[in-house]
Simulated scan of single mutants.
Amino acid sequence: MKITPDQRIQLHGFNNLTKSLSFNMYDICYTKTKEEREAYIEYIDEQYNADRLTNILKTVSDIIGAHVLNVAKQDYIPQGASVTILVSEGPVVEIPTESLQESPGPLPSAVVMGLDKSHITVHTYPEFHPNEGISTFRADIDVSTCGEISPLKALNYLIHSFDTDIMTMDYRVRGFTRDIKGQKLFIDHDINSIQNYIPDNVKELFDMIDVNIYQENIFHTKCKLKEFDLNNYLFGTKKDKLSEEEIGEITEKLKIEMDEIFYGKNIK
Rank of each mutant, 00 (worst) to 15 (best):
T33Q: 09
E148M: 08
S109M: 08
S135R: 12
P108N: 01
K241G: 05
D6Y: 12
I191C: 09
G65A: 02
L185W: 13
M25P: 00
E216R: 02
L242N: 06
E252D: 12
E216K: 02
I77T: 10
D62L: 14
M1A: 11
K268I: 13
V173S: 02
G248H: 11
E94N: 11
P199R: 01
P199S: 01
L152D: 01
E204G: 02
E36H: 15
H12T: 02
F228M: 08
P78N: 08
A139P: 06
K239E: 15
L230M: 08
N15L: 08
D165M: 14
L155Q: 07
S109R: 06
P104W: 02
I85V: 12
L230R: 05
M25K: 08
N15F: 14
F262R: 03
L205C: 13
I250R: 07
V92W: 05
V68I: 14
E102A: 03
P151R: 04
D163P: 04
D200E: 12
V93H: 09
H67A: 10
Y214Q: 00
N217T: 00
N231V: 05
F206N: 04
G264K: 12
G236W: 12
I267N: 08
M169A: 05
D259T: 07
D190I: 01
E257Y: 02
S118D: 03
L21P: 06
I44R: 10
D142E: 13
F262C: 09
K73V: 10
S99D: 03
L86G: 04
V83W: 04
P108R: 02
R174N: 13
D27A: 15
H123I: 10
Y233T: 12
V93E: 08
N49Y: 09
T168I: 07
M208A: 11
S20Y: 00
K268P: 15
R52K: 15
I261Y: 04
K238R: 11
I187F: 05
P5W: 03
S20R: 11
H220R: 01
L230D: 03
E98N: 11
I191G: 00
F228R: 10
V92D: 06
G182W: 07
E227A: 15
D75L: 12
P126F: 05
S22Q: 12
Q7F: 03
S118K: 05
K34A: 11
S144D: 08
K117P: 00
F262A: 05
F186Q: 08
M1S: 11
D170N: 10
P108H: 01
N24V: 12
D27R: 15
H220K: 01
V143G: 10
V122D: 02
L230A: 06
Q101R: 03
L242E: 02
P96K: 06
C146N: 15
I267C: 04
